[in-house]
């Protein structure tokens, strides 16, 4: 089991007085290595919150989160940062790229945080771009790229540290049909190579492309 969640709850404080909002109300979830899973649900159901906890961007209020059999629920921020850097890759709806940097600089950022020797950074980044067929865009400023190209740059960045898990939050939400199909195609190819992919989505065709669909309703798995 790659990912195991037991009784995960997440409570947010709202407003100034001690008002709270329970977004996740006891999530039990397991994901095996090499699975491609879609997480569906209506707006406000808790999909993004679940993704943030899966991605070590946030901690659960209660419950247990195991990654590769190791309980990381109460890991230090430093270790969670290392996990995000080396094991997880993020692909967001609006790309989350640095617009005024070029493609190569964007892709190399995780390598810098991984303390990769400077002499290897560019070469490793170019290799990932080549794998995705966008090495010709290396010197281009991100702001000049199309939506589909930007998302491919984001995927290259997500993979550059040879991460084995990709977390995608509405990766096709800002793309047209053609580019959406292209991105899903890339995800399927990566999945065939063994990458575990978890996609939060509204879209049916994305959910249908995944081998398992988890539906969240009112903070629980339906």
């Amino acid at each position: 089991m790659l990912i195991e969640m037991i009784g995960i709850e997440k409570v947010f404080k709202t407003g100034k007085v001690s008002a709270v909002s329970k977004i996740l109300k006891g999530i039990d979830l397991t994901i095996e290595k090499g699975e491609m899973v879609a997480v569906k649900g209506s707006s406000g159901a808790g999909k993004s919150t679940l993704l943030h906890i899966l991605g070590c961007l946030d901690r659960p209020t209660s419950g247990i989160y195991r990654l590769n059999g190791v309980d990381i629920t109460n890991e230090s921020s430093s270790n969670l940062s290392k996990i995000r850097n080396k094991r997880l890759g993020f692909v967001m709806q609006h790309f989350a790229l640095v617009e005024d940097d070029n493609v190569l600089a964007n892709v190399s950022v995780p390598l810098l945080f991984a303390k990769t020797p400077f002499s290897q950074v560019d070469a490793l980044s170019m290799e990932k771009l080549r794998q995705l067929g966008i090495d010709h865009l290396a010197g281009q400023k991100v702001s000049k790229l199309s939506g589909g190209e930007k998302q491919r740059v984001a995927i290259a960045r997500a993979l550059v540290n040879n991460t084995d898990i990709i977390l995608a939050d509405e990766p096709t939400g800002a793309l047209d049909q053609e580019n959406s199909a292209l991105i899903m195609d890339i995800f399927k190819k990566l999945n065939l190579l063994g990458t575990t992919i978890i996609i939060v989505t509204h879209e049916e065709f994305v959910a249908n492309a995944c081998e398992r669909v988890i539906t969240i309703a009112d903070g629980k798995i339906a």
């Binding site: 921020s77 080396k86 995780p110 945080f113």
Partner: peptide, 15 residues
């Protein structure tokens, strides 16, 4: 915004 992207990619908030 930039630091939030960096956080996503593995930067510790303290960094």
């Amino acid at each position: 915004r930039l630091f939030t992207v960096f956080y996503l990619l593995g930067m510790e908030w303290r960094k």
